[in-house]
């Protein structure tokens, strides 16, 4: 198996060029999700592609995975807290101009949540010991 897991230089070089494009596209989808098709979920799912590309080049354990898992949980608390706060206190009725800011903030939070959650799912899944590992 070691022979197969050696990383390829072509992939590495091309991915270094592609990373910024993926980040730009994901952030664009998150930020324009307020008024256009898109939004936090789709943008976050695009951002997971970064970690998947990283897996293609270095298919080993990622070091910061537990930190990403913690981020996932913390951001979930923030999403629930922000949404319930806005709805319960009724900010949207008091300050109508808050609507767009609120939409964007919740989009960004959901984007981070989806990206980190799917990354954890993918890496945990990909590093499960297979049948013929020797």
């Amino acid at each position: 198996m070691n022979e197969d897991k050696r990383h390829s230089e072509i992939l590495e070089d091309i991915l270094q060029f592609i990373y910024p494009l993926i980040i730009l596209f994901g952030v664009y989808i998150i930020f324009t999700g307020v008024s256009q098709p898109g939004g936090g979920f789709q943008g976050g799912a695009v951002l997971v592609a970064i970690f998947m590309c990283r897996y293609l080049v270095y298919p080993d354990e990622m070091r910061g995975l537990s930190a990403i898992q913690k981020l996932d949980k913390v951001v979930l608390i923030f999403v629930v807290a922000l949404a319930s706060m806005i709805i319960l206190i009724g900010f949207r009725d008091i300050f109508p101009f808050m609507n767009k800011i609120y939409n964007m903030a919740i989009g960004i939070l959901i984007g981070i949540k989806v990206a980190s959650g799917l990354t954890v799912v993918f890496y945990t899944f990909a590093n499960i010991e297979g049948g013929d590992e020797d």
Binding site: I29, P37, F125, D132
Partner: peptide
């Protein structure tokens, strides 16, 4: 909106996960 989600998840993430699962064993 649904098209964007379908394109990202259906044809990218699911494919990569299936392929890595097939490669596992």
């Amino acid at each position: 909106d649904a098209a964007l989600a379908e394109a990202v998840i259906g044809s990218t993430i699911a494919t990569v996960i299936y392929l890595s699962a097939l490669q596992k064993y």
